[in-house]
Amino acid sequence: MTAGPLLSVTDLVVDFKTRAGNARVLDHISLDVKEGEILGIVGESGCGKSMTALSIMGLVPNPPGKITSGSIKLGDQELVDMDIEALRKIRGKEIGMIFQEPMTSLNPVFTVGEQIAESVRLHENVGAKAAHARAVEMLKAVEIPEPEARAHAYPHQLSGGMRQRVMIAMALSCRPRVLIADEPTTALDTTVQAQIFDLLQNLQDETGTAIVLITHDMGAIAELADTVAVMYAGKIVEKGKVDRVLSHPDHPYTKGLIACVPHLSANPAAISERLMEIPGVVPALTDLGTGCAFAPRCSEVITKCRTDSPRLFETQPEHKAACWVAQKEMT
């Protein structure tokens, strides 16, 4: 792929003022997503993955949050410090977003058709009829059976899976260039999750929309994403091509995340009784020391880890990790 990145985040820093002091929720985050690519962001709760999404959407709650420095570029438009009106036009039109809980993201007093049509009319100068036609067309695109009838349904009349399809339809109704999916299937059943993944993949094949998939599930990353960024305590600790990162993780946290989850095994008789653990808990962002934030939980920790915070460096072409041990092994 020779095309430049469609969405490019560079050295993004977001700070939150809390009672306990300043919390750096995003610490020099850099990400690129190309057209037709799926970028996965994975990490535990509080690692900053959702905040990354909100920053891109220009939805960082302010106060207490604030983008301190860095840049977010969509094509050649700079989104940081863009005025609210201009940003509102981009939001929804150029960047769409779907959330974890489709029930609370849909307005219960309007039909789903009305809501999709509304979001179309907000960004495009079309009539009510055309907008409704687009809504039905979108419902069809997200493989909802009997789209004409379902357009007149209220959110509570649909199942969880159907509601998430409606959310996707709404997010894609203005044909955005980037779709941000924040834990889109966490609230859904396994079989429905598989359907939604297929749907996202098919839609992307057709439209070439770039997708940023935010999840805690390494399995979802493996199945859907092209590239992955692993986040811990507000930093990206490892990023690269999915196949490579999953088969040869360089950062101990990534290794832990892969190994501590009981994945389905083809040979259940051979399953060991104990899972690998990452001991301890995620540190509070307000009292991160100077060293690597993962050092207190790391099983490979060396002296340097406790004093100096490692930066991302290339362990392989297109594969970076922020770990002194990995760096030492390279040289």
Binding site: A259, R274, M276, P279, V281, P296, S299
Partner: peptide, 13 residues
Amino acid sequence: MSDTMQPAQPEPE
């Protein structure tokens, strides 16, 4: 990578 046997680490007081 070794299998860590210890339970949750004591948290800061």
